[in-house]
Nucleic acid binder design. Sequence first.
RNA 1: GGGCAUAUAGCUCAGCGGGAGAGCAUCGCCCUUACAAGGCGAGGGUCGCAGGUUCAAACCCUGCUGUGCCCACCA
Length: 944
Amino acid sequence: MIDKSYNPTQVEGRWYKFWTEKGYFHADEHSKKPPFCIVIPPPNVTGKLHMGHALFVTIQDLLTRYKRMQGFEALWLPGTDHAGIATQVMVERQLAKENKTRLEIGREAFLERVWAWKREKGSNIIEQLKILGASCDWERERFTMDEGLSRAVREVFVRLYEEGLIYRDERLVNWDPVAQTVLSDLEIDNEPENGHLWKIRYKVAGSDESIVIATSRPETLFGDTAVAVHPDDERYKHIVGKQVELPLCGRTIPVIADPLAADMAFGTGAVKITPAHDFADFETGKRNNLPRIQVIGLDARMTDKVPEKYRGMTREECREATVEDLKAAGLLVEIVDYNFTPSRSQRSGALVEPLLLPQWWVNAKVLAKPAIEAVEKGETRMTPRLWEKTFFNWMNNIRDWCVSRQLWWGHQIPAYYCAECSKGHIHFIEKPGQKDPDLRIDNEAKPIVSKTKPEKCPVCGSTHLIQDPDVLDTWFSSGLWPFSTMGWPDNTDTLKKFYPTQVMETAADIIFFWVARMMMFGIHFMGETPFKDIYFHALVRDKAGLKMSKTKGNVIDPLLLIYGCKPESVPADERAASQQLFDDYPKGIDPQGADALRFSLTMLAAQGRDVRLDIRRIEGYRAFLNKVWQASRFVMMNLENTDAFSAIAADGCVEPFKVEDLSMTDAWILDGLNRCVADVTKSIDEFNFNEGAQRIYDFLWNVFCDWYIELAKVVLYSETTDEKTKRTTRLVLVHVLETILRLLHPFAPFMTEEIWQSLPKTDKAPESIMIAPWPVANPAFLNEKSAAMTQTLIDIVSAIRNIRGEANIAPSKAIPLVLMLTDDADKRSIVERMEASIRQLGKIEKITVDGAAAAKPAPCAIGVADGIEIVVPFADLINIDEERARLDKNIAKVTKALEASQRKLANPNFVARANPEVVETERTRVANGQVELEKLKKARALLG
RNA sequence: GGGCAUAUAGCUCAGCGGGAGAGCAUCGCCCUUACAAGGCGAGGGUCGCAGGUUCAAACCCUGCUGUGCCCACCA
């Protein structure tokens, strides 16, 4: 027997260890069962559990447990990501507390610090996934910087280089001057900001004329190498080809006509061209053969290419000085407010400086093509479908991927340079206070790309080889995840069994970062798309729809919800992150449990919608789990000391029923159960997890608990009912409960296991619900007739309860007599057979069944259920005014519905064109409605 | 500038061609021996606005308005 009250923390503490020790999570690559595999989106190794993790664990674990129960060899392959920039920054911060920088301690010592940090913190996130119940195969846990995965990275790099799909080239790139690294296009944010447009006069050399240009970055004018106007612009036609004086630096630059560079309608129609610091200008420069002058350096300060006065200034300082000096020189025409969109680093928030630097690139166009085709052909399906459009749009316009980063933490690029052959192109720059010199390798240096460090230069034989100092973008290694984790480049049994995987489940915001790249690499190296289905879950937001962030104080920490918390016992910084939560719940949160969180996330995460997490919803679903718990207690109490106690057979099901032993209500609940099983299965197969959860919720609570259990009590507690009937009822109770538990297990694994383990079972039953078979709907139990009859019973009881409720008759107060009037023999038979149930559920002492024409005692209250007139003599129970009001309300309701149906049937087009079944339904409604209305009206007339 | 999504009860959300649903909140009556984290009953919505298609529209189409997101070298 389970405990009297449901205590999630206690229950959830019990089972994870049991599952692990039994090895249920382990998938066997030599199994004969069909494979089902999900690879985890690897969380950052030093990360801390957040709601996004909770959501993906919920869905992926649900799918994995479901498939495992269905008899698949289910592998959920876990691991963590080294998260290059994020981890490096975190360790740098740690160093800063000791007043050290990574440059001071040098690369080698720094990397040792990061590894130490990883060893210390790396298991946290894994332990937290376990709290949620994640049934990952931990024996296969991987880390993107493992030796095996690093080998895969080198293999891919070398092969792509040899195929010409990776190359080194000097281009304008996004430079983050704070993080001191290049970023890919995807790592840039563009948020509009309030800024200005400065209009500056450039004088035409040797003339009184001038041209006014507009710019949002006046400090870059030192790098201008032209002014562009539109060729059709009448205002400037005459000065195209002439030189203008570049203010403050005594150079002259040409005025060029370029239809792509200049928009006649914008600003003054004339634009300064700075090819070394602007992407558009870079292209313009190429088209017009303009020189590039780099006036801003890696440190985001002005270089020695600007007049001495400005050298060493930051971009901001230089802007101020430039504007000041232009003003003094009378060349500043106007400053207007302007809303512009600067590029900022997602990581550091710094203004990105476009700089000309040699970097490593992946030719994305070539790799993207087969990935696009795989989705077009349906080899990989995306759910929700609309993401395919987004995917195509990006993939069709994909640009080459800059994969090198000037970081230390990551996979160092397997490229080497010969100090002899590339002499003059490799620069060691000693800097004060820096352990290692900076290493700059010009674009002209010749890389030797190799999986291992070559012993000597293949050209000149020199042994002085220098490895490229850069590391690869984190997403390069995560792009290999679906096969690198399975042992590639070796052709392992795991790869043979589990690649390609069945489902990729992830957040849509990394569709380009991660999903697209796994598609590209997977197809290129494995010859097959890495997953059949991609399911994108939504973003978890706060209850107001805002993204959760520490600075907004609207973070909801999954662990605080699962275990509950008192505000005073939460550390100050965490409390600040969750300020909103504690404002709403000043006394703290009760423990909700991982099951309730999982069930809630499942319910809230409808396809394609963002999740607004409201704790009240979670509390509601915890109440549901409590309901399951209590219903289970009821069932178990009624099994004790009976022979139904050992009824659950080896397949997890109770012994087969004899259909002829089933009562009307037994048949009805089994009909409902089998429909429920079919619906839940279909919902999960279609990734409609919320529908499945809703279906179980509704069936368990509104059908099983509210009606079947109450009806079962009548049977079980009756002294006159025979033992065989009671036994069947017990069997049905435990069968329905046990089946629901199995349906519910992927949604709420802990509590279903706890209850299931307490259920009576034979020796042949499986050891755990998680390896019990998934329920299969049995059509033999579908029974429309019993379902309809039971519905009549329910309608009768509801009608009586409606009278009771409206008349405020206390539940404890019995109604002495109720008349049930109908001429329909079938319905009379239902009432007669179910009399005891109706009496108990309606708390009625005596029921008399009679014909429709029978005399009614006056005064009385009247209800109608499925054509049966239900007459409650007033006695002293009912207030006549309230009864008048109740009848008027019901008459209005029935009249409205009746008229609606009549109106439809009066329309010849409806009768002619609508589906015959629909027409028939309306006819039935009219017939029933007319009877009911007539009865209600008569009853009302009796009351005067 | 392009694209996508979304608007349903006080709140958070399902439903997406045939009589408006859930949870929470609200209002009655109840500690009825599984459950007060509960039971029984009730109230509450011209389903964003305007057109259109259809016998029938919350649901399909068009436009508009609000909101959110993504992409894009608008000096």
